[in-house]
């Protein structure tokens, strides 16, 4: 078996990583494994942190991305315009420089965040009240639309009609809200 990192030397280290119940297998040669040494240093006690593990995880991602990029002959580095952190830097540290990084790296982040959070990419929790009523209304409408679909598949049409009316009412509120805000 050839090392999945360099695609040259034979893979001598094989390991399985399980995260949130999802299995991922890695086959690396010694040299590449050393470069990603952090991933194997779990037992040396000193300095190992979740971020080492994370950056290991991202590194694999970027190596794939790099291969892809080389194929496309595109080698541009994405950089956050707010704090100037580059995507490779984020991968190395495992932490963002600022809130805007989430926007700057959104395309690359999606698979990473989904992998970290069992396939989730949508926040379903608390919304800051100061964010204005809009988000709250939007979220409520989205939730109700999901309920509506469920009710229709369950053929509970009476409840579905009620839900539809509730959605209309909220959409009206939102329209008023937007007009009032201008």
């Amino acid at each position: 078996m050839v090392c999945q990192e360099c695609n040259q030397r034979p893979a001598t280290l094989h390991f399985t990583k399980i995260m949130n119940g999802e299995k991922a297998e890695f086959h690396l040669c010694e040299k590449c494994a050393q470069e990603h040494g952090d991933m194997f240093m779990i037992n040396n006690g000193s300095g190992f942190s979740i971020n080492n593990l994370l950056s290991g995880l991202f590194n694999i991602d970027t190596s794939y991305a790099n291969n892809q990029a080389q194929l496309n002959k595109q080698t541009q580095v994405v950089q956050c315009e707010q704090c100037s952190m580059t995507f490779p830097q984020f991968v190395k540290v495992g932490k963002f420089g600022c809130a805007h990084c989430y926007d700057s790296f959104r395309a690359q982040l999606r698979p990473i965040i989904k992998r970290l959070h069992s396939g989730n990419w949508n926040h379903n929790g608390k919304i800051p009240t100061r964010m204005g009523g809009d988000i709250h209304l939007k979220k409520q409408i989205e939730d109700l639309k999901i309920t509506l679909k469920e009710l229709i598949t369950k053929e509970e049409f009476e409840k579905a009609a009620e839900t539809r009316d509730a959605i209309r009412q909220l959409e009206k509120e939102m329209k008023n809200h937007l007009e009032g805000g201008e």
Partner: peptide, 15 residues
């Protein structure tokens, strides 16, 4: 962020 919620410096805490 509307999509991913409260933004944290480590992506393991986002949402």
């Amino acid at each position: 962020d509307e999509q991913v919620g409260y933004l944290t410096s480590c992506p393991t805490n986002v949402g």
